[in-house]
Each structure stands twice: as structure tokens, then as C-alpha cells.
Simulated scan of single mutants.
Amino acid sequence: MNINATLINYYHVCYRKLWLHANGITMEHTSDIVSEGKLIGEETYPQRAEKNQELEILYELPSQDGEGAGVRLSAKIDFFDARTGIVHETKKSAAKEKAHVAQVKFYLYLLRKNGVKATYGMIDYPKIRQTERVDLPEDEMTELEEWIKAVAEIIQLENCPPTLAISKCKSCSYFDFCWVGEE
């Protein structure tokens, strides 16, 4: 089973979205909101590509029963300054969200598990011209492991979790999928 940073983000947003994405039903390619986010990420800080590197990182958790494959954790970090150990994430949102912080904490967790210096993270919100620093103290590592365990349990559910209140779903790329014929 693969658990990536997107699933950690979705865990803090909507279990249904998490389950659908993890089970191969992806809607991001049809979303103008997602396309706008990618464009902002690519165009807002072009100078970063010159001095920082994109980083793909993996970590294998051991199998719970000692047999077979364990859980594979993965992330693709937009910008990582290896010299300072700072992770940079850009979000198109005009609102700071717990899910954004959780995603950056997951990046820091993976880097540390791989023995890479990971000092802290910075989330850039270009629309509101703000940044947010994200730290991962040692005492929060257990909380991250609980998130990973919970994500694995949701992925393995036989049935898709229920929808949230429609008011929370309006800007979601899965909106049409979840709410077709329901309005």
C-alpha cells in the first residue's frame, strides 16, 4: 500500500476524497481549481528552481505481521533547500488550512525517517501574500504515525465513506462525482 502526501492532506479534508483518490478514482485532471493551483506553483517563484531542488522521497514501513510488504510512504516536495533543510510548499488557497500544515509535516517526517536534515517547512500563500512556518517537534512524530495508520484503515474500507455537508464541497474537484443529481 502506498500512502503519499496528497492522502495525508485529504485525511484532514475529507475521508471520502481520500478513499476515492487512493482507490484510483481521481478527479483532479478535470478541475480548473487544481489547474490554477499548479500554475500558481509553477509561475509564482521561478527563481527557486535555480537554487533549490524538487525532491521525491520514499520510506518503507515494516509489515505489521512480519510478512509481505509493509506500507510505502512517498512524497514529491516542490522545493527543498538541502543546505538549510527547509521544505517549501506553495498553496493557491486564500485560506490557511490544517491540511496544508499536515502535508508539510508529512514531508518533514519522511525526510527525517530517511536521515535527511529537515529543519522546518514554509507554506507560501501568494494570493494573500503570507507565509506560514511549519515545525515538527519530536513529540509530534507519533501523531503523524497515527495519521498514517488512520489513512491506511480508510483506504482499506470496503465501501466509500459518506459525503460531507454540501457546503464544504463546493470547491472540491470531486464535487460533481459526489453530488451529481443531489442538489
Rank of each mutant, 00 (worst) to 15 (best):
G68S: 09
S173M: 07
T84C: 08
L111N: 00
D65R: 12
T90R: 08
N9L: 03
Y15H: 15
E145C: 02
N9R: 06
R72L: 14
Y45G: 00
Q47H: 14
C160P: 05
A49Y: 12
L136F: 04
Y59I: 09
K170H: 08
E97L: 14
Y109A: 04
D32C: 03
G41Y: 06
A22Q: 03
P137W: 00
N159D: 13
C14M: 04
H29P: 06
F175D: 04
K170M: 06
P126S: 01
A82Y: 12
T30A: 11
A22R: 05
V71S: 11
D135L: 01
Y120D: 07
Y11H: 02
E67W: 13
E140T: 03
G66L: 09
C14L: 04
K91D: 11
E43Q: 13
H100K: 05
L55D: 04
M1E: 03
E138M: 07
E140M: 06
Y174I: 04
K170P: 03
W19S: 04
C160S: 11
A95F: 12
M27A: 08
Q130T: 06
R72F: 12
Y59G: 10
L58I: 09
K92S: 15
Y15M: 12
T119I: 07
F177A: 00
G70E: 05
K17E: 10
N52W: 15
W19I: 06
K76A: 15
G66V: 10
E67M: 15
Q53P: 07
G66E: 08
L144G: 00
C160R: 01
C178K: 01
Y107V: 00
E138K: 10
G24Q: 03
D81F: 06
Y45L: 11
P62E: 13
S74F: 15
D176L: 08
Y15L: 12
K17W: 09
V34Q: 06
H12T: 00
F80N: 01
Y10G: 07
D124P: 05
W179K: 00
N159H: 13
K17P: 02
